[in-house]
Design a protein around this nucleic acid. Sequence first.
DNA 1: CTCCCTTTGAAGGAA
DNA 2: TTCCTTCAAAGGGAG
Length: 408
Amino acid sequence: MPQLGSGGGDDLGATDEMLAFKDEGEQEEKIPENAFTERDLADLKSSLVNESEGSGSPAAAADPEAIRRVQDPQRVYQEKLPDHMDDAGMKHQDPGMYKGSAYSGYPFLMLSDPYLPNGSMSPLSNKVPVVQPSHGVHPLTPLIPYSNDHFSHGSHSPHLPADISQKQAVHRPSQTSDIPGFYPLPPAGVGQITPSMGWFTHPLMLGSGMHTTGIPHPAIVPHSGKQEMEHYDRNMKPQPEPKREKEAKKPTIKKPLNAFMLYMKEMRAKVIAECTLKESAAINQILGRRWHALSREEQAKYYELARKERQLHMQLYPGWSARDNYGKKKRRTREKQQDSNSDPASPKKCRARFGLNQQTDWCGPSCFFIQLLPLKRYLVTSFLQLPVLMYCCQFKGFCPPCSGRKRP
DNA sequence: CTCCCTTTGAAGGAA
DNA sequence: TTCCTTCAAAGGGAG
């Protein structure tokens, strides 16, 4: 058991040591000399939080007109659409136009909508780094005055090599059949949409990533996706079409992305290219380390973006709570718990039956071995002919905490 | 087909 | 106030 000898109990360090991909890119992940302390970062974070929680949105406070624009998207469209259709590639002529385009989970950065109905990602979505210089101007940018200062690297993200960006641009399908990523189409403009834009055909839009304001928002996804399927598969026999249709239209508003998520979205492509890794779990580990190696200023950029995302999200969905999306895993957990409760030999029931401490198993959870080794639960009969719950390691049939007794 | 893994941060509930 | 849980993204891998 290597963990035993790892010493110091530095879990993080140990974890890193165990990572097979550690070598890759490790050298380039040197922490800058001016690296901030965790305390500094915490200060920064709290300052950002305070700023956002203070006397309202600074951006909004600075620009009351912006609030009105958000509240009146149609007006925004009318005012902004022509410009940003030009800027954002509605001309769809320039194959490299995405290179500098802005996309994020939210519209003010968005060129395409990653939350298209049926769980399908926009063909533009997942390859496009979230945080990139904004080429087009989103209608909501007055509200969220994204400054290209955040992207002071000129036309290219420093994190994203030009070749990658170009590759992404090359893979873009024709814009002709694509929805422009900005929120874009005023209700008045719907009639101009081609019938092939199936997701836009429903007048109410609500089942199609459309906010009640009429703004399609990437955070809104219909329930027709994974979750809905799961519910259907597990709990339902085929239902009459109307009911299923009705359920499928219930929109899901997703959480706004936090700073790290924004960073991941932007940097994932680069890491994949550098490390030739495809597994997201491994990539995320690398990204996590790189995130910690970022300078204070670089991290602040993402915290600021995340803060603005939250602001916009709050303004678009005032009553929304992250709790609204709770349930999937919770339901699973509950089901497992119910299974456990229905099992007469479940640890909980057996411990209760024999007056054992619920906090301590037969061998005791404080036992180091018992926590590390695979366990199996045994319900055996004691010499009093009473059933007794036992936990024993399956490790070579030997259970150290049981004083060397062989597994029953 | 579905869930897990893996990361950080935000949010909400429980203690 | 602190701690815990869940979910955001992503896509390969496992069952």
